[in-house]
Design a protein around this nucleic acid. Structure first.
Lengths: 199, 199
DNA sequence: CTCTAGATACCGACCGGTTGGTATGTTTCT
DNA sequence: AGAAACATACCAACCGGTCGGTATCTAGAG
């Protein structure tokens, strides 16, 4: 049972190194040799565990988007109003952007590569559409409970996703340009005043 | 005066080819030789007109973002209410995404490269902050005229930019996934119900 | 007008270096 | 012994960029 542990250790050391380098320099500009060197392993080990550079990338997509999804679902406490949940999301936005810069930068890389590679696109679109379903559910629920206006849940979810990804990308482009945490909160407030039914 | 014409023809043929290939395959993955071949010129001609591959990219950033800015400013007719202008913008969104796919794909490339290269970042951020100022002005004006709620113009502009870029990127990732023109219009409507002052 | 010198625009072979990927051998676990 | 995990050496292809040389154009002199 020693081999299995070793296997997992090397695998995750490859993934860690790749995530770091892909986020920093981009998928195309990062070489396999570079990843191996940072991971402290050889090229042979790399290609023993992964079929190709692309395979590592796809593994990263699935890993991180899966993590993000479950962490998103985890923030939803029972009985919490949709508008409240949105505001709490905005508040954690600052923390996410601040502490997980590496991982957030990866998303941009996912996005770019997905446009070119069918396999990667599918790996990105699948969790992405689950995100949309998640937001959609929250909006539907909010409407049912009278917390939100009677908007089209699909459109509402898309607007939310737009704002979220837009903030994401802007924060990535110009991290020091604004207090993106504050902007996120303000954005949700402005959105809510349109979404929330007037009492 | 023949030389000047020749010069400009070659230069723009390089820029056209580069725009097409960068949009399709990405900046990193596109070789200079590839650009030359599509432009129908030699590598010597390429490096005669541009100092580097990066220089071509920056020229494209300035060209296209400049075009976008002036075309944006052109849509603003005097005396038009801010909310009306926003809706008309949303309506042209469909046309932009549909017909100019190549150029819109370039924006994503700009964004990605800007994170890595200081020169490119500056070339992107300068027009970007002018966009922000433009939106900010429209919101301020809308508030002054009583068309919009009394929101913070800076925050409002950032929300608009977030939605716009978010829609942009989503449309790029999954062009067939939604009718993005319709989503854009719906997004602005939802936003407006929060921005517009209740009568 | 012609002739010509020099500037301008362009060509394509070539360079050192790097790329993703592989073939073969060696160590470590079972 | 045999399988699993890894290391090393290597490859053809390609990368951005350079360079010596050439064709085309322009301006001024005669």
């Amino acid at each position: 049972m020693r081999n299995q542990q070793r296997r997992e250790e090397t695998r995750s050391s490859i993934l860690d190194a790749a995530a770091h380098l892909f986020a920093e320099g981009g998928y195309d500009a990062t070489g396999v040799a570079e990843v191996c060197s940072l991971a402290g392993i050889s090229k042979g080990a790399f290609y023993y565990h992964f079929a190709s550079k692309q395979a590592v990338f796809i593994a990263l997509v699935e890993l991180w988007l899966g993590e993000l999804e479950s962490s998103l679902a985890g923030t939803r406490t029972a009985g919490q109003a949709a508008s409240e949940w949105l505001l709490s999301m905005a508040r954690t936005f600052r923390a996410i952007l601040g502490s997980q810069t590496q991982k957030t930068a990866l998303v941009l890389e996912f996005w770019t590569q997905a446009r070119r590679d069918a396999a990667i696109r599918q790996a990105v679109l699948t969790p992405y559409s689950r995100f949309q379903g998640f937001f959609q559910g929250i909006i539907s629920e909010g409407i049912d409970h009278g917390d939100l206006r009677d908007v089209d849940p699909v459109a509402g979810a898309q607007v939310l996703l737009s704002v979220a990804s837009g903030l994401f990308f802007q924060g990535l482009l110009d991290p020091e340009g604004s207090d993106w945490g504050a902007v996120a909160e303000m954005s949700i407030r402005i959105l809510l005043d349109g979404l929330r039914r007037d009492p």
